[in-house]
Simulated assay, not measured.
Amino acid sequence: AVARALATRPRLLLLDEPLAALDARTRLEVRAQLRRHLAEFEAVAVLVTHDPLDAMVLADRLVVVEHGLVVQEGTPSDIARHPRTDYIARLVGLNLYRGQADGHTVRLDTGPAITTTEELSGPAFVAFPPGAVTLYRERPSGSSARNLWRCEVAGLETHGDQIRADLTGELPLTADLTTVAASELDLHPGASVWATVKATQTHAYPA
């Protein structure tokens, strides 16, 4: 279908969920081929997708629509590094919070403060990946992490080759850990844990 569409040398190509019906392995191969074709396409291509990986790999510029409204637009790298809504943060795999920055501290609108390496003033976002979160069953002593919160495990799910923990408490967040670590911590819904994140693993930017 893509070959037929490109054969007429159109000035505009619309791709509506082009990889949605493919299995995982085929999608990987077709995505790579489609990327090459679009790189050689000398007109405009518009891709509509709910798959963040398709968007990040295939697009030069993204427009994110929520509830019929454009909430953010920019290059894939900019949006991946500076998400501005919870929906976008989930798509790119980040924990995202909003608050008021004062130096290296961002006090969240609802919740505690987060220490960052960036120095800002005024409304700000703070983001960090689930893999930046370290979990303990007991309050850690001697930890170098500047951010420490008491949480409770709300749920666990397999995420690739890791376990993703959904946490509630002082700071709702998600954390990724290995299956071995999850087993050693005896994680289960309702378990109390301490979550830490180093300031160097956070990223703060103006809201």
Rank of each mutant, 00 (worst) to 15 (best):
A1S: 11
A5W: 05
L6R: 09
R9P: 01
P10K: 01
P10F: 01
R11K: 02
R11Q: 02
R11V: 00
L13P: 12
L15P: 10
L15K: 09
E17K: 10
E17H: 10
L22V: 06
R25F: 04
L28Q: 14
R31T: 02
A32Q: 15
F41P: 09
A43L: 02
V48M: 01
T49Q: 04
P52I: 05
D54R: 00
D54P: 00
A55V: 00
M56Q: 15
M56G: 03
V63N: 06
V70Q: 12
G74F: 02
G74Y: 01
T75W: 03
S77E: 15
R81M: 11
Y87D: 10
R90H: 08
L91N: 02
V92R: 00
V92C: 01
G103Y: 00
T105D: 07
P112W: 03
I114F: 06
T115S: 13
E118M: 06
S121M: 05
G122Q: 02
A124H: 00
V126A: 04
A127V: 11
P129A: 15
P129C: 05
P130N: 05
G131I: 02
G131L: 06
T134E: 01
R137E: 02
E138W: 09
R139L: 07
A145C: 14
N147M: 14
R150H: 13
E152S: 12
V153N: 04
A154W: 02
G155F: 04
T158D: 09
T158W: 04
Q162H: 13
I163L: 14
R164T: 06
R164G: 06
D166T: 13
L167P: 04
T168A: 07
T168Y: 04
T168R: 09
P172L: 06
L173W: 01
L173K: 00
L177Y: 07
L177I: 09
T179C: 08
A182C: 13
A182M: 12
A182Q: 10
L185V: 07
D186L: 13
H188Y: 07
P189L: 06
G190T: 11
V193P: 04
T196I: 12
V197C: 10
A199D: 12
T202G: 13
H203N: 13
H203S: 15
H203M: 08
Y205A: 07
Y205Q: 08
A207V: 02
A207D: 15
